[in-house]
Structures are given as structure tokens and as C-alpha cells.
Amino acid sequence: MATTATGEIGAGGRPVAAASNLSARMARSWRRNGAGYLFLTPWLIGFFGLTLGPTLASLYLSFTDYDLLTPPRWAGLKNYEYAFFQDERLRHALWVTFQYVIWAVPLKLAVALALAMALDRSVRGVGLYRAAFYLPSLLGASVAIALLWRLIFGADGLVNHLLFVILGIKGPGWVTHPDYALWTLIALAVWQFGSPMIIFLAGLRQIPQDLYEAASMDGAGPPRQFFRITLPLLAPVIFFNLVFQTIEAFKAFTQAFIVSGGKGGPVDSTLFYSLYLYIEAFENFRMGYASALAWLLLVIIGVFTAIAFLTSRYWVYYEDEGR
């Protein structure tokens, strides 16, 4: 602390020699910046070594052929050309992933909003219900749940057993049938509506109750209240959940891997984009192509996010607008 004390006295306008002035300024600059950068050091190493460096390396590798054994060979646009014009499996993986995103995200958000509204008006035991609805989301990312799903929707799994006992129907092997396998994964995603529900609940609490009271005085029924008050005032929260869940859905990997036994089957019907990327990189060792796939995904997610943000001007109103 002694150096800073002299530094401050020097800065206080007392005549000091130029040399000591310089050292005082350096000491002050160190005091200003040094501590910050010292605290930042671990992050800076991680940022350059594990994030920025690899990101640039990935961009470079996407223009090469690389199998880990021989050094990367420059291939120009070959990987991208293959991805755009020839790779039927990629086209299929994209189709599977889009279907998953388009069904799972809106369904999940609709269920989450419905239950958040059912839980809102100070229901007794809110805490217990909320815990019960949230638990699947917390556990759902695990391999154990994916295994469970595999067995529930298997040919002689729980679902078919119940179908047989209750309706007398002999159901198909849902996870082994190409028409249904993706739907089991969509169901698994919807089952995990807990975190958007909690975010909706927090959002609903922000809506002033007197708005509803005023509306019902004016004779507006529940549907009208929902469309005229709840939805517009909740728009920022819906927007957040939508963007976030969409990105998460594009990144989904573990559940598809386990349910399909690591292959994306049957007949590639659960070949999620991330799973395809994994197979290309770590089973076929096409590191260059996998890097190109990673950059394509980055662009796809970026485009989706940009669309969401650009259109949000027309449907998301923030209360503090018009500052």
C-alpha cells in the first residue's frame, strides 16, 4: 500500500522530479490495470487457448481434409460444396433436426405456459406442484432418463403394455420404428418443460393484478384477458424462452445418442445434427468436414436468432419502451 500512498501524494500537485513522476504514473497505471488483468488471467488464458484459438482453428480446418493421422491438407471449398450439394445424409440430418425443433419447442412452451398459468393465482401447494413439474427437467439431461425412455417406448415397453391392457392394441416398437422414433424424442423434450415454466411463472407474477380486475369490470372474459393482457405483457419472456429453447434444441445430442444406440437410427430417423457431427468427427475421423459442419450450425443458429430478434420488433413490447 506504500507505493499507492506516494503515488497519490505525487498526483496531488506537489512538485516532484520527472523521474519519480514517471514511476508514480507507472505505479498508478499498474494499480489501475494490473490488478484487473491479474484477476482476468485465468479467463484470458481460457479465452485465447480454449475458445478463440479453437474457433479460428475450426474455421481453418473446415477448409481442409484432416484425419488426425496425416497433417491437414488444404481442400478449399470442397467440404462446403460436399455439404451443400452432395451430402444426402446431412440433408436428412437437417430435416430431422428442423422437425425436432419445430415440434418440440412450441409444444414445450405451450405446455409450460399452460401449467404456469394454472399454477399462478396463489394455488395452495404451489411449491410442491412446481417441484413435481420441474424435477423431470433437472433429471432429464442424464443418460439414465434416456435409457428409461428407450425402455418405456421399446417394443415390449411400458407404453405398449399399457396400450395392450387398456385398449387391447398391440403397439409398434416406438423407438425402433422410423416413423415414430423422432416423436419419442420430441415427447422427451416436451416432458422437460420445467424451466420455461418457472420462467413463465416469474413473468406472470410481474403482471399487475389490477389490469385483470379492470378488464373483468369492463366485461372481458378469460380468453380475451389472455390475448389482450397476458400474452402481450408476457411477450419478452416468451421471446427469451423461444430463442433459448430453440438454440438448445439445435444442440441436442445425448438423448438422441442413447435412444438410438449412438447411430441415429432406425434408418437415420433420429440423426440429429449434433449426432451426425459427432459421427463424422469421432467415428469417421473426418475432422475437416466436421469443422465445416460446426460452422454451418453456427450460421444456422445465428440466422434463427437474427430472425427472432428482427421480427421481435413486431410482437415483443417492452414496458419501458418509449423512454
Binding site: 474457433t55 475450426s58 439445435f250 450450425l297
Partner: peptide, 9 residues
């Protein structure tokens, strides 16, 4: 940044 981008490098 999606994890995919840094995965391979």
C-alpha cells in the same frame, strides 16, 4: 457460441 465449434480443435 455453440460447443460444436470448439469441439474438434
Amino acid at each position: 457460441l455453440p460447443y460444436h465449434v470448439t469441439l474438434v480443435p
